[in-house]
């Protein structure tokens, strides 16, 4: 009976001792729950904007590209229509018809090369690209945050490989 009591006493005494030491040492707790939810922390923590705004501007950029593409398609399809009627009519000489026919062929070639180049540039890791070929000039717009001469020359190299008649290649990077 006496031993049992002394065990209890020892247990309680050691518990009190531990708690006392804990309080006396008085070190700041590593986790302060109340401090975490006070207004001060709200001021300290800056809100970081997510990438949603970026996405929106990419969509608008892409939409602008699409609009330009439509404009070019419309212009070319009108031209092709005119050339086709020229080839079909009787009012023109054989040479003129031949020339018109060659022009149509050229248009088809330019169209497919542009589409091909857009695919190639996209495969280099860009979100969207717009390629316009006007005779020996090639204009390229690319959606990209960073711009460097190295990246530009990489694109120009691919363009010259695909379209050897390219004399003047211009690359512009449109940031988001």
């Amino acid at each position: 009976m006496n031993r049992k009591r002394s065990v209890w006493f020892l247990t309680l005494f050691s518990l009190v001792a531990v708690v006392t030491v804990f309080y006396v040492s008085d070190r700041p707790s590593p986790f302060d729950g109340i401090q975490l939810f006070s207004d001060d922390t709200l001021d300290e923590v800056g809100l970081v904007e997510t990438s949603s705004t970026n996405e929106e501007s990419f969509v608008s950029k892409s939409n602008a590209f699409e609009e330009m593409r439509m404009e070019v398609t419309e212009k070319r399809s009108q031209l092709r229509d005119q050339l086709t009627t020229k080839v079909g009519s009787n009012e023109f000489t054989a040479e003129q018809k031949d020339e018109a026919y060659n022009q149509i062929e050229e248009l088809v070639k330019i169209d497919s090369t542009e589409a091909m180049l857009e695919l190639i540039i996209k495969s280099l890791g860009y979100d969207d690209a717009l390629v316009r070929i006007e005779e020996s000039d090639v204009f390229i717009d690319v959606v990209s945050n960073e711009q460097s001469t190295k990246k530009a020359s990489e694109i120009i190299y691919q363009v010259k490989r695909e379209w050897p008649e390219a004399y003047n290649v211009e690359v512009s990077f449109d940031g988001q």
Binding site: S62, N63, E66, R69, M70, T73, E74, S77, R80, D81
Partner: peptide, 23 residues
């Protein structure tokens, strides 16, 4: 109102109906 949808519609229709895109 989405230009990409417009473009794909024009492409599809012009191939299916054999008509120039500007029409």
């Amino acid at each position: 109102n989405d230009k990409r949808i417009q473009n794909s519609l024009i492409k599809t229709l012009s191939s299916v109906l054999q008509i120039s895109p500007h029409r």
